[in-house]
Write a protein that binds this DNA or RNA. Structure first.
Lengths: 343, 343
DNA sequence: AACTCATCTGTAAACGTTTCCAAGGAGCCT
DNA sequence: AGGCTCCTTGGAAACGTTTACAGATGAGTT
């Protein structure tokens, strides 16, 4: 017993033991050389040579167990098909890659059970941290969030007293930008196609729409407001319902997928955009640029939010004692053809 | 020395040692109970109770080190923004989730160095397997592929003699379907907007287009063929170049992003689709349905290919001695408004 | 009552890495 | 020459889990 192991791993792949044995040094010395931590010239040479000869590659799992870090960062979003999340993901990827992390993407489907299960699974510590963008925030979320042993950054609204790093857009103001723009262009019969009201963005956008309309002294007729979910098909159906019973001269949509659906509904019923009906989307995704006519859209700074979230997370991973921070990203309106801007 | 450890992990989180100590049993018994492997009724009760009391959650990394599996499967695609890969990803996700795996998505940007680096990184064994869809296949790819210690499935063409599980679409035939359809509809001046010819799909689609045209006795005028990359902006620019010097009555596009760009180019120059110019895309993504008019598109079965690739990979992970398999997915044409189909 | 057999339990090793610690040796200064 | 520091080295422990093995216990069989 206690026999020193000079063998390869069971599957025949070289380990640090293999390298050390071949170089005639201890595994401690081999490990140090391989990590660039000193060693005599001769030792370095021998270890390097041995490692190259056997094709040694350190095992990521064993390293993780020792270092207590996996090098993985999770991103949990509702719908990976929504370009707004793709843009956010790209921005996050760019930041975390710099620190040598890789991104693990979860599509939650927006359901509460799945999201909280995901948060609880963090207890297994299979990632070093998580960025999550829940569209609903429940008690269960908050509980799982605060219980998480690994850092979590939330992109989206969060109750004030939850001590978690947080990046927020201001979609209330974002909707106001859209309404202001349309009113300035002389539109008065402004429709609104929203996502579910029991989601955080849905509620915020509804409130923003009503507040902005009120500020301009415009009434919000129930016939002019429709709700679907945040997808294309539902947006198109919702817009069709709206158009069947009302005659808006402008429509604000709660995101670009809905806006593209609404555009479809408008064009298919023979309406001209923007001459008959102006259209404004939200999130300023690639979709808005790819449509014809191109769709004006309120940017909520998805890339910027992603970047900030990634920075917050990396900072917290580096120092867990930081006081939770809250970042805000201001919305801006990108005017395109669909609301009368130039092509 | 040799002192038995009865402590929590350094960060205070409970380990199996904590649970065992609290239950008054050995870590072996605790582990067995926690994994549902026997134990007396009394032991089971005590361990379960202790685990619940301290909130024990097994550490995924330690488990991975022992089991030599991470539970992670990597998917490497060129462009995470392309809906075709989103569809594929969803299909893969659905399959691998059943076996308890999680998906790790890499966006390679389609560059050879990045892809081969990714393949070489597999040597670290940070995932149990990888599905990769390279748009170029070089010597370096093949070398890295065959040297990989973990299973890899390639989605896309691959030299015949490379012993790797492989799922293929037939984009040659796919283009032929598009051409046949347009010819049957009476179109004769058929343009083609392709991706780079030095990519595998680009080359196949070019060959397919020329073969199909020849079969119908139609000449391929150089002025009627344009090349960009597989993105929207390049597709739009390429279509604009084509339209500036030729007057096609139909355009075939090498993917849907290009098709949406071409649609834009057509509409912005006042051409009617499909009356003046018919349009057919490829990949049958959501984009094709979301455009107005909706775009006919050749489905290359991206979801199906994803599903098959995932199955091949899981099978190989379960049994590494399997002989490499090759699956084929047949293309099909989905006719929509842009080529004269009904709305 | 002695035996077999199954079931349960604890010890210890294993997975592959990093790192603490003590010891050895070389060089430098006084 | 002696004492000091600095560098290098190897042994061993640690990360947290699973599991092979052997011993113990109990039930069942003859």
């Amino acid at each position: 017993m206690g026999r020193k192991r000079l063998q390869d791993a069971v599957d025949g792949r070289p380990t640090v033991h293999t390298v050390a044995a071949r170089a005639g040094v201890s595994i401690a010395s081999a490990s140090r050389v391989l990590n660039g931590l000193g060693g005599s010239a001769e030792t370095v040479r021998r270890v390097r040579e041995a490692a190259a000869a056997v094709g040694y590659v350190p095992n990521a799992i064993a390293r993780s167990l020792q270092s207590q870090r996996t090098g993985l960062i999770a991103l949990a979003v509702e719908d990976i098909g929504n370009p707004v999340y793709v843009a956010m993901m790209r921005a996050i990827e760019a930041v975390v890659a710099e620190s040598g992390h890789q991104l693990l993407v979860h599509a939650t489907g927006g359901n509460v059970a799945g999201e909280t299960a995901l948060l609880r699974r963090l207890a297994h510590r299979y990632v070093d941290g998580m960025i999550i963008s829940p569209i609903r925030v429940t008690e269960a979320h908050v509980a799982a969030l605060t219980a998480s042993p690994v850092p979590v950054v939330v992109v989206g609204q969060l109750p004030e007293d939850v001590p978690v790093d947080n990046v927020r857009a201001d979609s209330r103001t974002g909707v106001a930008l859209a309404v202001d723009h349309l009113v300035a262009a002389g539109r008065t019969r402004i429709g609104f196609v929203n996502g579910p009201l029991d989601t955080v963005p849905g509620a915020a956008r509804d409130a923003g729409f009503r507040a902005a309309m009120a500020r301009h002294g415009l009434a919000v007729e129930p016939a002019m407001v429709e709700v679907g979910d945040f997808q294309y098909a539902a947006g198109r159906a919702a817009a069709q319902r709206l158009l069947a019973r009302a005659e808006p001269d402008a429509i604000v949509c709660a995101n670009d997928l809905i806006a593209v659906g609404a555009l479809h509904a408008l064009l298919v019923t023979g309406r001209r955009v923007p001459e008959d009906v102006a259209l404004v989307g939200m999130d300023d995704t690639e979709l808005a640029q790819m449509s014809f006519p191109q769709i004006s859209s309120v940017s909520l700074g998805s890339a910027e939010r992603g970047k900030l979230a990634a920075r917050l997370l990396l900072d917290r991973i580096a120092d867990g004692t930081l006081v939770p921070r809250r970042e805000h990203v201001a919305p801006s309106l990108v005017v395109r053809t669909s609301s009368g801007g130039v092509q």
